[in-house]
Computed example of a mutant assay.
Amino acid sequence: MKLVFPENYDPRLSVRETQEAIKYIRDTFQKELGKEMNLERISAPLFVEKSSGLNDNLSGTERPVQFDVSGIPGETMEVVHSLAKWKRMALKEYGFAPGEGLYTNMNAIRRDEELDNLHSCYVDQWDWEQVIRKEDRNLETLKETVRQIFKIIKHMQHEVWYKYPEAAKHLPKDIHFITSQELEDRYPDKTPKERENLICREYGCVFLMQIGDKLKSGEPHDGRAPDYDDWQLNGDILFWFEHLQCALEISSMGIRVDEKALEEQLKKAGCEDRRSLPYHRMLLNGELPYTIGGGIGQSRLCMLLLDRAHVGEVQASIWPEEMRRVCREHGIFLL
């Protein structure tokens, strides 16, 4: 059990006030996200058929929760890890045009997650996806979208400060862009997580780009599935989090693979067998729109804006009894 306990920690809001603040942040942020990015809210599944190829396999080692349904014999269902591929299918099915998009409340179970201050086996995020033109698949589009999301988060900081001035966390004025290779070149003797911490401590907020492909060291900065983000046009939004003295990831996002990038990345990842799955066949045949999209952690955002030391303070999940006991002793109440 790896936990960090800030010295003289004070959550500043009661549990009931915290619940009220969580609802306020979630309700307000999704409205702003939809309005500012021209996204329409839609309903999304909690699980998908394994044979569809729609589930996100994350770094490739996490096990999805699986079950069968008596009314659909011979098929295995999987609780989603994320909706990265499902959203692109939905944009096609619902007839969204370039410049239009969708967002949804995504709930997932990640059974192999290590439980600590930042990680839970329950994932809740706003998954969003927007149709773009093929000529918009470039770095400029990616950076402009990142700045737009950062602006919405900054606006939420002001909203929270106005309503809960004693609890709001002050965020940096701007976001810094850097590639994973530039970061490795800068700190060649550090681990990927140590590099993230160092760069976020320096700038406050960073968009770390180009995650998934191998670096000069021979290893990728972090694992990424080969069949949704284009590894040259993706990244993570990271904030420096003083309480835990580390980088806090709020969003993973990117421009999605086109036919060429999918072929290349499936080959690099040794996953060429996926070409026969329904989703991948559609993509390779040019039947899906070009898109940009990502996920924004709901509990992580509440944790950031309310300056909380444990994700369990803003999310109802499962925790070991020993963790609950020790956290309570340090003034951290897990929902």
Rank of each mutant, 00 (worst) to 15 (best):
E202P: 11
C271Y: 11
L306W: 07
W126K: 08
L102A: 12
G223A: 09
K169A: 15
M156H: 14
H221K: 04
R147H: 10
N234H: 01
W231T: 00
E322N: 13
D185M: 01
A21Q: 03
V206T: 00
Q315S: 04
Y187V: 00
D229F: 09
S317R: 06
E7D: 10
G254H: 04
I153P: 04
M253V: 05
T76R: 07
H176F: 08
L198E: 09
W86G: 09
G331Q: 10
I332S: 12
L283M: 14
K87M: 13
E182N: 09
C205R: 00
S120F: 04
R26N: 11
A269R: 10
L301I: 07
I237M: 06
V15S: 06
G212T: 01
E182I: 04
D236M: 01
G293F: 03
H280C: 13
S120G: 14
L39K: 03
E93I: 11
C200E: 03
G95I: 13
E263M: 13
P11F: 13
P6M: 08
E100N: 12
L334N: 14
V131D: 15
R274L: 13
K267P: 03
I22L: 04
N117V: 15
C327Y: 12
T141A: 03
L58E: 06
E184Y: 09
K169C: 06
G235N: 01
S59Y: 03
F47L: 02
L334F: 14
E49Y: 10
P64D: 12
L83D: 08
D124G: 08
W231N: 11
E17M: 01
M156S: 03
S276M: 02
L262I: 12
K267T: 06
